[in-house]
């Protein structure tokens, strides 16, 4: 769920852009350093961005019958790590704005913050924590993708509530309204995306164990095939 073009007041649009900027700069540096070491990953990240975009065109069967699509950010954060995913997420959001009129340029900062930054850090963090608590790989992947998605949705609701506080109930009431109205599509979506990501990772480990060995997060705890 992205905030549409022009929806946020100017001070919020600028504020979220400034909040996202340091993460983007950090990610650009991290990716540059990674490409210096492994030049062949230039292509991989580019193709991964295209993959996330194509994935977002998939229609998932959803309980509420609304059109919901996976973000692929959880999967990407597990495969490439949050440092690269901030940049990949930025490119995906720019493409969604320019090719699909989904999201926008003035709200790019806010959308990058909720999806690429919060989404990928939460997904990677939850995965690490789950593995530390010795949860099974499937459970960890499910929790990471599902909570990453939910964190994106909660952050977007916070952004909207902050920009448009309720005249009577203030921020909290407004948050309840926005979170409630979008929960209808976003909660089933997060669960579906969690399940889908588990299926993807299972299939990858079965058919592509070799490639999985070189991935940052799976390296640390060693995925069992």
């Amino acid at each position: 769920m992205h905030i549409m073009e022009g929806f946020l007041p100017v001070e919020h649009a600028v504020g979220w852009t400034l909040a996202s900027a340091p993460f983007v700069v950090w990610s650009v540096r991290a990716v540059r350093a990674r490409l210096d070491e492994y030049p062949e990953q230039r292509m991989l990240l580019g193709v991964a961005a295209a993959f996330a975009l194509v994935l977002s065109a998939l229609k998932l069967p959803s309980v509420t019958g609304s059109c919901s699509h996976p973000t692929g950010i959880g999967l990407g954060a597990l495969l490439f790590g949050p440092a690269a995913m901030v940049l990949v997420g930025l490119v995906v959001l720019v493409f969604q704005a320019l090719l699909l009129a989904h999201g926008g340029l003035t709200t790019l900062g806010a959308n990058v913050f909720s999806m690429a930054i919060v989404g990928s850090f939460v997904a990677a963090g939850v995965f690490r924590a789950s593995r530390t608590f010795r949860l099974s790989l499937a459970t960890s992947v499910f929790l990471a993708a599902c909570l990453g998605d939910l964190a994106t949705y909660v952050t977007t609701s916070v952004q909207l509530a902050w920009a448009f506080p309720d005249p009577a109930g203030g921020f909290v009431a407004s948050m309840a309204k926005f979170a409630g109205i979008f929960a209808l599509t976003q909660i089933p979506l997060a669960i579906t995306e969690g399940l889908l990501t588990v299926l993807v990772v299972n299939a990858l480990i079965r058919f592509n164990a070799d490639e999985m060995k070189h991935l940052p997060l799976f390296l640390t705890r060693g995925a069992r095939a």
């Binding site: 230039r42 292509m43 990240l45 580019g46 193709v47 961005a49 295209a50 993959f51 975009l53 940049l87 990949v88 490119v91 995906v92 720019v94 493409f95």
Partner: peptide, 8 residues
């Protein structure tokens, strides 16, 4: 990344 993404 944008060029590669667009081509792929």
């Amino acid at each position: 990344l944008m060029v590669l993404c667009y081509r792929m």
